[in-house]
């Protein structure tokens, strides 16, 4: 749908044309979905639709901030971007990630990924062996066994916040150890 068509729909919605508003929201949904998919690759795919809905809600709550004299798309993209960042912040990224996705978050920061680069299980065990036992268990549970954060948190009696921090630090530490072992 072109920019103008979106603007026309939103203009109509602003004068209480509910059908136009529903049409507008339906028209922007695939656009948002596309952006969310592209930008949230490190969040689990099942959460993408949640984020799409968050963005739709944000558009709805902030619909008064669109200036009819301005194009719709930059406004739409800005809201989408903001809510994707928000989603990352709220979900604390690491916890929901299967290992291969977590890899590129770490890679961005660390330029080396401790686990994905070495699919060799023995090597991973070796790296885990160099961590303290609790940290190693956190990594095993969350990353290798993909257990739910809440379960691990309850079992090990670590608060969810600390759990995330521990996971993050352990992954970092393993990346360092892994690099040291390289020729």
């Amino acid at each position: 749908m072109t920019e103008d068509a979106l603007a026309t729909l939103l203009l109509a919605a602003n004068v209480d044309d509910r059908q136009a508003y529903a049409q507008f929201l339906r028209a922007v949904t695939p656009i948002i979905r596309g952006i969310v998919r592209a930008r949230s690759r490190s969040l689990a795919p099942d959460q993408h639709e949640d984020i799409v809905q968050d963005v739709l809600l944000a558009i709805h709550r902030k619909r008064q901030t669109w200036d009819p004299g301005q194009p719709v798309r930059p406004w739409l993209y800005a809201i989408t971007r903001y809510k994707i960042i928000d989603a990352y912040r709220k979900r604390g990224v690491a916890v929901h990630l299967p290992i291969e996705d977590y890899a590129d978050v770490l890679a961005a920061e660390q330029a080396a990924d401790p686990l994905a680069a070495r699919d060799d299980r023995a090597e991973v065990d070796h790296l885990l062996g160099q961590l303290d036992p609790r940290s190693a268990e956190v990594v095993r549970a969350l990353v290798l066994r993909d257990e739910a954060q809440a379960d691990v948190s309850a079992r090990l009696q670590i608060s969810p916040g600390n759990l995330r921090v521990m996971l993050h630090r352990s992954m970092k530490r393993m990346a360092q150890l892994g690099r040291r072992g390289e020729p």
Binding site: N14, L25, R26, E49, L57, W66, D67
Partner: peptide, 21 residues
């Protein structure tokens, strides 16, 4: 996807809000 559709129907039923001036 259907939940998203429900949301859209719900949202489009709420009253308009005039653009901020």
């Amino acid at each position: 996807m259907s939940k998203t559709d429900d949301l859209i129907i719900q949202l489009s039923g709420s009253p308009v809000r005039a653009p901020l001036r």
